[in-house]
Write a protein that binds this DNA or RNA. Sequence first.
DNA 1: TTGTATGCGTTATCAT
DNA 2: ATGATAACGCATACAA
Lengths: 338, 338
Amino acid sequence: MANVTLKDVAERAGVDVSTASRALSPEKNSVVAPATRRSVIEAAQALGYRTNLQASALRRGRTGIVGVIVADISNPFIGPVIRGVAHALGGRGLLPIMTETRDSSDELAQICEKLLAQRVDGIIITAARYGDRSLLRRVASEVPTVLAVRELPGSGIPSISHDDVTGGRLAAEHLLSLGHRRVAQLMGPQDIWSFEGRAHGFRDAIIAAGATCTDIRTLSRLPTAQAGREVVDDLLARVEDPPTAIFAHNDSIAIGALGVLREHGLECPDDMSLIGYNDVPLTAHIHPALTTIRLPGYELGRLAAELVTSDGDAEPRSGKVQLAPEIVVRASTGRPPP
Amino acid sequence: MANVTLKDVAERAGVDVSTASRALSPEKNSVVAPATRRSVIEAAQALGYRTNLQASALRRGRTGIVGVIVADISNPFIGPVIRGVAHALGGRGLLPIMTETRDSSDELAQICEKLLAQRVDGIIITAARYGDRSLLRRVASEVPTVLAVRELPGSGIPSISHDDVTGGRLAAEHLLSLGHRRVAQLMGPQDIWSFEGRAHGFRDAIIAAGATCTDIRTLSRLPTAQAGREVVDDLLARVEDPPTAIFAHNDSIAIGALGVLREHGLECPDDMSLIGYNDVPLTAHIHPALTTIRLPGYELGRLAAELVTSDGDAEPRSGKVQLAPEIVVRASTGRPPP
DNA sequence: TTGTATGCGTTATCAT
DNA sequence: ATGATAACGCATACAA
């Protein structure tokens, strides 16, 4: 029972290994006689046979494994993305192998090396920073590679993302429509396309409306609640004419900011409006429920998986797909104080 | 550059493949002459050679891959566990392959099948329910298997967990010490050991103190914020003499409950104390900051990975390890209303 | 329809 | 210290 091979199955069924192989293959079992096929399957079950995927992969030249690289597993918006990837891959008989970079380029390089050594059939990357461009270009030249969530302009690597510029603009328009004229944005790392896009979309719309926008850069490498805390202190201290609304580049930053605002006695949305990004599950459950921009994570993951596994077919395998963002208005935004 | 094999390297270095193999092996490169070794390494670099781990695995009988099975990637407490696993495995040159069951036993069965077919060197399971006992026993008989976070009593499978009974007791003692005499617990699924342990530890301590404990079972299969919402409505409607404190079996349930309480005009902790479980990152940032029981996720993951990779050494490879829980007192608990 | 033979890329054994 | 060779388990081209 320890290690049953095809040979064992073939012997028990009284056929050659090649026949056994065919009988067990979903694609070629039509060419083997129903009777022998049954006896092979029976023998396989009796012995508890299980294809050795490693050996199979070696022979066929495909492993059936797709590498998935994320920056931070704890970031709640990544859950749906992973799920979308896993479902799409599972439907095609593939298995995802998930790894985390903690947004470190060194980690990313090491992980790519490992995945390539595993001869994965494709790689989905959601952790790309500008500095990784040449590395990822090399990777993409060796194995089908798709960027998900985060694009990497100029890399030539196909991407499935959503329109961060429009997302930023939606946030701006919402605040403007409520009457805000002085706003600030708490920015995620600007060497990541998603955040740069959000920043531009937001700022441009604010400026175009003749309102003023203060940009606050977070210091931490990871855009977490802690990063939000650090930066709001800064904001409230520094600005002489403080904003009436804040756009946080993701929900975690927003939640961190919310805490500090409260400590400063500022209620949300009465004293300060706050809008986040991603629409992670918890945003609906905190108080006040967070207004945010929805990122269609599951869809992104699904499409990325489909793209990476469609090796060169009719599909483009290059260029980029962008889904549309959507604003979710909840309780954290309102009219500016008089 | 497409697919450089050892043969290519050997030819370029003017040696046999077997010599090339030895020269590149960290363990056996001591037996090859320094000069040839250098020329082999040089050739490998020049050609961009990368070991084919599939072929290597086939030959050696070990894949260097460990399967990691979680119930719900979106559950924030799992992040540190995964990180602990990944670090420990990475340090040993192994690669984790992560999968999600969404707490479905069917999914679990399918995933185990796939992992076994991949000939993983070990499996770490954090998604065990009582109903999975026989399945997991079969799995454990084929490959080193370790349960993490959730034990499975009577399965004989080694586990790295923490002491949920004590965790429940800590929650109870904290509430009792604040003067609460009528309390309720919002229970996670009781076919999962962690939640059953918390339930018993809590209830026993409450009863022993002569106080009263109302058990509320969540309906959802997954212990999420939504589950917390559903159940608190129930609690507030049903109990004639309502509790003054609530123990939620995890932080997500607690956060869901918090929202409903607020909608009912109940402030926390003034009208109702609330204590969660797991100490996920966000609990410190919501309002009020949540009192909770800390689960040492990173440590659990690390130890599980170490155990699953220590095949039969001096180590026990059976029995269970339990880490100690710890209470984190924040703002969501206080004295009961007069 | 089935069997024979070969090779995927690597490593371990045995000679040399 | 190095080379020749076999074998890991499977899938396929080809022959029968």
